[in-house]
Design a protein around this nucleic acid. Structure first.
Lengths: 204, 204
DNA sequence: AATGAGATTGACCGAAGCGGTTTATGGAGG
DNA sequence: CCTCCATAAACCGCTTCGGTCAATCTCATT
């Protein structure tokens, strides 16, 4: 790819990336027109092809950029340091919202890319998996102390349940357009508080 | 549309519908090739155009058929009669699994159609909304008796939480291909049991 | 065996869209 | 005035699309 891309003003770069994330997240790789991405970014198709040799290069750069942004943001929010389950979820959420603020379709793009089957790119995507950080694996790694939770609670099921609710919540908010991120963060914080209320052992 | 379609053997009809649900659920309306649907159903494109005047007619018939199947199955599983929240969820789940057994992509199709923006069909879809039955509205309608649940439990949040977890669970299982429906039903039943355990008031 | 009607298809059409290239434009710096 | 270079428009060859149509194939009836 053309290094000149990086000397573009930040907002222009971001517009291009967001165009890519939007289009590639809503269509399969093959049915995602480069022209649509260019239009979304407010530049001509030719210029986009000036920065990226071809469609594949653009796509793979987006993928790479995803990983960078994600890791960087998670680190920035201290997600790798926390030991408490709910604290981890809370900062994980804040990191996710922060990413969505800058790149609203990045999350959807990752998912689409993950399941993409086009032989032109699937192998390359498959070859770079180790970067996935999600609630499921996270929760499994956090050796939980049963004495902190309600008696007889099935901790494994609790983790899966919270994971699914997070997926469902995020998914619904991504689909629904017009996402109010502040509202979303607020809602999710309430949800975590709710979980603490019902899952943690009551001191009395 | 051509009435001759209905005198096709049941399995052929179903193959056509499933082809449509698959393709339309994974691409936008405009980028869903009729030829792909025909191929999936094992017939020629020309024959498909013999049964349905054009793409739009096919799409709208699929939409209509969705509603029929959904309502019929929900009725069949007694979803409209139950009064207990968890019982309702349980039979709702079984109905959903039953539908997925026959039409694996119907659920995904409904969602895609719901958010479709193509001016050729969006108005028609928007004009037939009242048929949506989901956990959220269901739960709101079931006037819950607080004395059955744990003290101080936020019932509204509980409903939303269960709704999101259902969405998240179903969504993850739809994406993941190779869905084992029996396994899924089993998992979901366990999840409902888990909820009863944590949400219902303990008698002692 | 011949017929005829309906089921089914392959070939075809014009239009549109695709990825990518080439040429033209316009403006800043010397 | 010239050079450079960011940018865009026009263009190219190719594919794909929705939809049509004429030709086949099937098979019950004569």
């Amino acid at each position: 790819m053309n290094e000149k891309f990086f000397s573009l003003p930040q907002e222009k770069q971001q517009a291009i990336l967001n165009g890519g994330y939007r289009v590639f997240s809503q269509n399969s790789y093959r049915k995602s027109p480069v022209s649509e991405i260019a239009a979304e970014a407010g530049i001509s198709k030719s210029l986009l092809f000036h920065y990226f040799r071809n469609k594949k290069e653009l796509y793979l750069y987006l993928w790479e950029h995803c990983a960078e942004i994600t890791i960087q943001t998670l680190r920035q929010y201290g997600c790798y340091e926390k030991s408490d389950l709910f604290e981890t979820m809370c900062s994980g959420l804040k990191a996710k919202v922060q990413i969505m603020r800058q790149y609203p379709y990045l999350g959807a793009f990752v998912l689409k890319a993950y399941y993409e089957q086009d032989p032109e790119i699937a192998p390359a995507i498959q070859a770079s998996y180790q970067k996935h950080v999600d609630f499921k694996t996270n929760a499994a790694l956090l050796k939980l102390d049963p004495s902190r939770f309600r008696e007889g609670l099935d901790l494994q099921m609790m983790c899966r349940e919270m994971y699914w609710a997070s997926v469902g919540y995020l998914w619904e908010n991504i689909q629904g357009r017009e996402l109010d991120l502040d509202q979303m963060e607020q809602n999710f914080t309430e949800l975590i508080e709710f979980w603490k209320e019902i899952y943690l052992r009551k001191e009395e």
